[in-house]
């Protein structure tokens, strides 16, 4: 008998054949990451949870269209991105989505039970992130928090790598300036 870890690709193949338990296992591996991605770009816990459920339902319905199971992560985040922007559009159909800001300002309230960081620092970081444009913030979330490569980000955001890099680098410059006083002098 040979033991080996069950890969995501195995679960995807089984789920595509209608195995709901395999899909639930796949969800348990990804739900926290997807929820946190949506929380960072919507800044609202309820919206993030609703969207996460929608994302996994839509992913299940379209799982057979996923040609390469190895590309599951960017494919899933592409769905999440589309669902979030679809919600923004429904809420403010007359406005340009690019100009929209998240409605709530819940980011950073929870620091985490075992966090050793002062809560003011987390709030300052959350505030600095909120001052970025939605595209810049999403680029930071995908790269820094979710660890995607530029190529994958380009796939998720459906834009060239050069645009992804430009958004991310501008965001990092702004964050460096915003967070420098905290790093150098602490919060006043």
């Amino acid at each position: 008998m040979i033991f080996r870890a069950v890969e995501d690709a195995d679960l995807i193949r089984q789920a595509a054949r209608g195995n709901v338990e395999s899909y639930n296992l796949l969800i348990s591996r990804w739900e926290k990451r997807v929820y946190n991605y949506l929380l960072r770009i919507t800044a609202n816990r309820e919206d993030a949870l609703d969207l996460t459920q929608d994302v996994f339902l839509k992913a299940y319905q379209n799982l057979r269209k996923l040609d390469n199971p190895e590309r599951f992560a960017p494919w899933l985040y592409r769905i999440a991105h589309n669902e979030a922007y679809s919600m923004f559009r429904k809420r403010r159909p007359e406005a340009d989505v690019d100009e929209m800001e998240p409605v709530g300002t819940e980011l950073g309230i929870t620091v985490g039970g075992s966090s050793v960081f002062p809560i003011e620092l987390s709030l300052a970081v959350a505030s600095a992130l909120e001052r970025l444009s939605p595209e810049q913030r999403e680029a930071v979330v995908l790269k820094i928090y979710q660890g995607f490569k530029f190529e994958e980000m380009s796939e998720i955001l459906e834009c060239p790598v050069s645009t992804v890099k430009s958004r991310l680098y501008t965001a990092l410059e702004l964050l460096k300036v915003e967070l420098a006083p905290i790093q150098a002098r602490g919060l006043s």
Binding site: S28, F117, V125
Partner: peptide
């Protein structure tokens, strides 16, 4: 160093647990 400090500051925002687990029933 500045980039590392910025990244470290960003990581003070911790991931949150999902308030409600998601599962589908066949």
């Amino acid at each position: 160093d500045r980039l590392h400090m910025t990244e470290a500051a960003l990581f003070t925002l911790r991931e949150e647990e999902i308030p409600q687990r998601i599962a589908f029933v066949s």
